[in-house]
C-alpha cells in the first residue's frame, strides 16, 4: 500500500460496511430501490454513480476555496447535472435498452442524496485525492447494497442472473423447477425492494451491535 496510507484505505473500506451510505447514513435510497429488479440495471446504476461521485468529489474539492458558501448548493447541482448528462448520453449511445429501463432514474442521480451528502460532508473540506477516495469508497458501498438487492430480487423473482437462467427452465420444468419450485413474482414488485433492504439492515445490525439505534 505505497500509494494509500492507512487513513486513505479507511476512506475506501469504511463505507463498505460500518459506515455504509445506504444502511447507516440513509443516503441515496430512492434509486437503490427503484431499479434493483434486475442485476444488470443495478450494476450499471452503480457504475454511473461511481463515475459521478468520483469525478464530482474531485471537482468540488478543487473548487472548494472559490465557491461562495451561499450559492454552493446551486454550484454543486450544476456540477452534478453536467456529469449526469454525460452519463445519460453515454448510456443512450451504448446501452439504449438499458437506458430505457432506468428511465428517469439516471436523471435522478442529480438529486441522489449520496452525492450532495458527500459533497457537503467531505469534498468541501478535504483535498482532491482524499475526496476522490471518499467518493470511490462511498459509491462502492452503495454498489454493494444495490448488487446484493438486485441479486436476490432477480434470482428469486425470475430465476435468472444477468438474464441467464440459473435455476433451470420454468416452462420445460428442468432443474429446480422439476421438483415443484416456482418463481416468486412478488420479488419483482417494488415493495419487495424495501423489505429486502430492511432485512439487509437487520442482518448487518445483528452482526454489529454497535450500530443498533436507541429506541
Amino acid at each position: 500500500m505505497g500509494l494509500l496510507s492507512k487513513k486513505d484505505t479507511a476512506l475506501i473500506l469504511d463505507p463498505l460496511a460500518d459506515n455504509n451510505p445506504i444502511t447507516i447514513q440513509v443516503l441515496g435510497i430512492c434509486s437503490a430501490l427503484a431499479i434493483t429488479a434486475e442485476l444488470k440495471a443495478s450494476i450499471v446504476m452503480s457504475i454511473s454513480v461511481l463515475f459521478v461521485l468520483g469525478v464530482g468529489n474531485v471537482v468540488i474539492s478543487l473548487m472548494r476555496n472559490i465557491i461562495p458558501s451561499k450559492i454552493r448548493i446551486i454550484v454543486q447541482l450544476i456540477v452534478v447535472a453536467t456529469l449526469v448528462i454525460i452519463v445519460d448520453l453515454v448510456l443512450k449511445a451504448f446501452a439504449y435498452e438499458l437506458s430505457k429501463t432506468l428511465s428517469v432514474f439516471v436523471g435522478l442521480i442529480i438529486t441522489n442524496c449520496i452525492i450532495m451528502g458527500r459533497f457537503e460532508a467531505f469534498a468541501l473540506g478535504n483535498g482532491p485525492w482524499r475526496s476522490f477516495l471518499d467518493g470511490i469508497g462511498n459509491s462502492l458501498g452503495y454498489a454493494a447494497i444495490l448488487i446484493i438487492v438486485g441479486f436476490f430480487r432477480e434470482l428469486l423473482g425470475s430465476g435468472t442472473l444477468l438474464g441467464i437462467p440459473v435455476l433451470g427452465d420454468p416452462i420445460e420444468k428442468t432443474g429446480l423447477y422439476a421438483i415443484g419450485y416456482e418463481n416468486n413474482g412478488f420479488m419483482l414488485l417494488s415493495p419487495m425492494a424495501l423489505i429486502v433492504v430492511g432485512i439487509i439492515i437487520w442482518v448487518q445490525r445483528s452482526r454489529n451491535k454497535a450500530l443498533i439505534e436507541e429506541a
Binding site: T23, P191, I195, G198, W202
Partner: peptide
C-alpha cells in the same frame, strides 16, 4: 417491542414496504 437490530431504520423500511403493498 421491536427486535433491537430492527429498531429505527430497519423497521421503517419494512413498514414502508408493507404500506407500498397496500397502495398497490
Amino acid at each position: 417491542a421491536v427486535p433491537p437490530a430492527l429498531r429505527g431504520l430497519g423497521i421503517t423500511f419494512i413498514i414502508t414496504g408493507l404500506m407500498a403493498i397496500g397502495f398497490m
